[in-house]
């Protein structure tokens, strides 16, 4: 299976005087999980709604494969989408919710039953959605999206309300979909929530694209941080100054930014400075995310 490429081409959307999305272009490739990221109000949901033909763009166009969503014969068999966890009739049972949409998607009641089991709602299938928890609604939304076994899957904030177990389950599921060649696009306002799930990232802020790359390329933008501790703080301080490193007092030692641990260790060794601790603080992806989304004005 090869999913369709999703393309956003020069899209703008204004609501009254508010420019919610501004000259936005990016593509989402099949065979990978793409994270669509940005702070609240960045325009993520508006963009997804335009992609799915619910909202009309003021300018530009959005394509699923070779044409807009609404021009596909049975669009729900091309793209499965779950937009908000709240859009269910509370008086309908979970299973009935699926059965309501099954005819237009072109699938049987049998498939509805299978899907509700698949997303782990089997025991709750005949309960009214009004009594579902947020996590259960997310699962039901996902089941709705999967009705037509679509080659592309678009989920808006799918991890919201899921318990840690559910998040791991979702991550595995999305990974499996991507490995099958499907196109998977998930939005989130928290990078760390999806950083173990996604291959690619598209980051927007205030309606504009601020970054699009693989997750690995995003990580390269992060500055490494190294925590170092010495019984002779003065010597360590002099070493940092001699090398021109940015170091800040932290705990009982120094936090050196922009330098990997190995380099700090080697420098201390050759300068004869004794170290008691040398630790890499890892890559601050969240910092990169905040820097990218905060600086776009």
């Amino acid at each position: 299976m090869t999913g369709p490429t999703l393309a956003v081409e020069g899209v703008a959307k204004t609501f009254g005087a508010v420019r919610a999305v501004d000259d936005l272009s990016f593509t989402v490739r099949p065979g990978a999980v793409t994270g669509f990221l940005g702070p609240n109000g960045a325009g993520k949901t508006t963009t997804l709604r335009m992609l799915l033909g619910l909202t009309r763009p003021t300018a530009g166009r959005l394509l699923v494969g070779d044409r807009p969503y609404g021009e596909h014969e049975r669009p729900a068999r091309v793209v499965g989408a779950a937009l908000e966890a709240s859009s269910f009739h509370p008086g309908r049972t979970g299973l009935a919710h699926l059965e309501v949409f099954a005819p237009q998607v072109g699938v049987s009641r049998q498939r509805c039953r299978e899907l509700i089991e698949f997303v782990g709602l089997g025991p709750a299938a005949d309960r009214r959605v009004g009594g579902y928890s947020m996590g259960m609604r997310q699962r039901l939304g996902l089941a709705t999206a999967l009705l037509g076994d679509p080659p592309a899957i678009v989920l808006d904030e799918p991890a919201n309300g899921l318990d840690p177990e559910g998040i791991v389950w979702l991550r595995r599921l999305l990974r499996a979909f991507a490995d099958e060649g499907r196109t998977v696009l998930i939005s989130s306002h928290v990078l760390t929530e999806v950083q173990h799930t996604v291959d690619d990232v598209v980051i927007i802020a205030r309606g504009k694209l601020v970054h699009a790359s693989s997750l690995a390329a995003l990580a390269d933008l992060a500055e490494p941080e190294t925590y170092v501790e010495s019984p002779d703080p003065a010597a360590l301080q002099r070493l940092c100054e001699a090398r021109g490193w940015t170091a800040a007092a932290s705990d009982r030692g120094l936090l050196v930014t922009g330098v990997v641990a190995a380099e700090v260790g080697a420098a201390a060794h050759s300068a004869g400075v004794e170290l008691h601790q040398l630790a890499s603080r890892g890559v601050g992806l969240e910092d990169v995310f905040l820097r990218l989304t905060g600086g776009a004005s």
Binding site: L52, G53, L54, Y69, G70, P75, A76, A81, L83, E84, S86, S87, F88, H89, P90, F101, Q104, V105, T144
Partner: peptide, 18 residues
């Protein structure tokens, strides 16, 4: 009106955009 009250209109128009 139920479609709008419970926002099921979104899902309805996803499966039938016409």
């Amino acid at each position: 009106t139920t479609e709008f009250r419970h926002q099921t209109i979104t899902q309805s128009l996803l499966v039938e955009p016409r």
